[in-house]
């Protein structure tokens, strides 16, 4: 039995592109044949589930029963990786809950791999979030994601302030997700399929679709660049997997 792994994708602020990042992660694991399941905490309808129907379940992260559905099944599921898209405002409560149920202790003992993708917004509030989150992520693989999906400019304030926050997180690794062409992003939204499926010109049923070649090209290029970031931070190395480590960018068919 492989060591179970949990990835939290979250931020305390909404609209920073959490679900977009979660979607790129699911596509990345699909491309690398890493068995993955996902939990969408956008009750009741779910956003992630709209794109990744087959592997996602909508849960209420504040309900104990649903927390059990995620955590208690970590060691029994066939999935190597469990991705949880944490709804806006629930990041800190979720981390508190994980501490309270002893999950963080299990991580400390090396029984579970715990990865946090903390999606940053462009305001100073994001830096405060880092400060709040830091005590819970000592034993986690902690990635700070600068998501440019909303075309925001990051940290335009004093560099010293910026540096003082990041100094507190010696082990945090920065991942940058650049902006996807707006029209391409909209078309994938309308298609409600994973990015990878859009690139392959398939609809949700697996039938050949009629998406614009130009927009598919933009998505492929962008996805390849996001995956290059995951390759750069050696994301796959964190998980016990038998997957053939084919370079993700090659799978996306993307060139630099």
């Amino acid at each position: 039995m492989a060591k179970p792994a949990l990835i939290l994708v979250g931020a305390d602020k909404g609209g920073v592109g959490k679900t977009t990042v979660a979607r790129t992660l699911l596509d990345y694991f699909t491309a690398h044949h890493v068995p993955t399941r996902a939990f969408d905490t956008e009750m009741p309808k779910g956003t992630l589930k709209r794109f990744h129907r087959d592997v996602s379940e909508v849960v209420d992260a504040t309900a104990v029963a649903d927390q059990m559905r995620i955590i208690d099944t970590l060691s029994t599921t066939d999935a190597t990786v469990t991705v949880v898209d944490v709804r806006a405002g629930l990041m800190s409560p979720t981390l508190h809950a994980l501490r309270d149920i002893g999950f963080l202790d299990a991580v400390k003992k090396g029984q579970i791999t715990f990865v946090v993708f903390h999606i940053l917004g462009s305001s100073i509030a994001s830096l405060n979030e880092i400060e709040e989150t830091a005590p819970f992520t000592t034993d986690a693989e902690y990635f700070l994601v600068k998501n440019f999906i909303n075309n925001t400019n990051f940290f335009e304030w004093d560099q010293a302030t910026h540096a003082s926050y990041f100094k507190k997180l010696k082990d945090a690794v920065i991942v940058e997700v650049h902006k996807l062409n707006e029209m391409a992003y909209e078309q994938v939204e309308l298609a409600s399929v994973p990015f990878l499926t859009f690139v392959a010109n398939k609809d949700a049923k697996g039938e050949t679709a009629n998406y614009s070649f130009v927009l598919r090209g933009y998505v492929r290029h962008w996805l390849g660049n996001v995956w290059a970031e995951y390759d750069r931070v050696k994301l796959l190395d964190l998980f016990e997997t038998t997957a053939e480590a084919a370079p993700a960018r090659a799978q996306a068919g993307t060139r630099s």
Binding site: F213, V214, G217, Y218, R220, H221, G253, T254, R255
Partner: peptide
């Protein structure tokens, strides 16, 4: 730039 980015040559 667009030609290269969208992978036009392969298509």
């Amino acid at each position: 730039e667009v030609m290269a980015q969208i992978g036009f040559e392969d298509e």
